[in-house]
Simulated assay, not measured.
Amino acid sequence: MIDETFIHTTPDDPLIEPIIDGLFAEYRARYGDYFGEQEEEPLGLYTPPDGAFIVLLRHETPIAMGAFKRYNVTTAELKRIWTHGSMRRQGLAQKVLLELERLARLQGYEALFLTTGFRQPEAVRLYLSQGYQPQFDLSIDPERYSQPPFDGRLPFTKTLFDQPARSHYEKSRAV
């Protein structure tokens, strides 16, 4: 049996430094300086009650990760979903995605938003296979989204509930 477990952490955890470095090395390899220097985000964005940062460990070694932060009152924004290159094609990104969805529901989010880069066809396939709705035209060559007026990001959305979640007030009145 494979020993896998999720941990909740922050992007500055020394344990996960190799996987964070791998993520950004891959971004550089795929995009060069297309997206320019990325601003560092406050680490608190990825902690409850508004966010989460999870890492999948196999035999105590980080192999995949993902996070979310508040996008708006009802929507979480997924970020940093990534699997170590040597561990791909095992369904690990899907495991991370499903765990992020579960955590977002627990935190009361009703929907998810995410973007992926125009040179990440495997990410596009993953999100489509999991019911995410593209907010761009799939019939257009993704490289076109790297040209103005686009910014290179391919946005997706997903509703987490079949019907809108009831407000806290409505829930308390139903009891």
Rank of each mutant, 00 (worst) to 15 (best):
Q135Y: 15
E122W: 11
R102S: 05
G91R: 06
A111C: 14
F150N: 03
G85V: 07
T159H: 03
L103Q: 10
I81P: 15
A111T: 14
S139R: 09
R102A: 07
E143Y: 03
L154E: 02
G131Y: 12
Q107P: 08
R80V: 06
T83L: 01
Q135L: 15
A104P: 06
H84C: 04
Y71L: 08
P149S: 01
Q94H: 13
A76L: 07
P134L: 13
L126A: 03
I140G: 08
F150L: 01
A104F: 00
Q133S: 15
L98T: 10
E77A: 07
P134C: 07
N72Q: 11
R144D: 07
R80A: 01
K95W: 05
A104M: 05
A104N: 04
T74H: 10
A123C: 03
R105F: 02
L106F: 07
N72Y: 15
K95G: 07
Y145C: 02
Q133E: 15
K69V: 13
L138P: 10
H84E: 14
T75N: 09
Y109C: 08
E143R: 00
E101C: 13
L98M: 10
T83Y: 00
R119D: 02
K79I: 14
L126W: 05
E143S: 01
Q130V: 12
R153D: 15
L138C: 11
L114P: 15
R88M: 02
T83R: 06
L112K: 07
M87E: 10
R119S: 06
Q135R: 12
E110Y: 01
Q147L: 00
D137L: 14
T83N: 04
S139C: 11
S139D: 15
D141C: 08
T116D: 00
Q135W: 14
F136Q: 11
S139E: 15
I81W: 13
L103A: 12
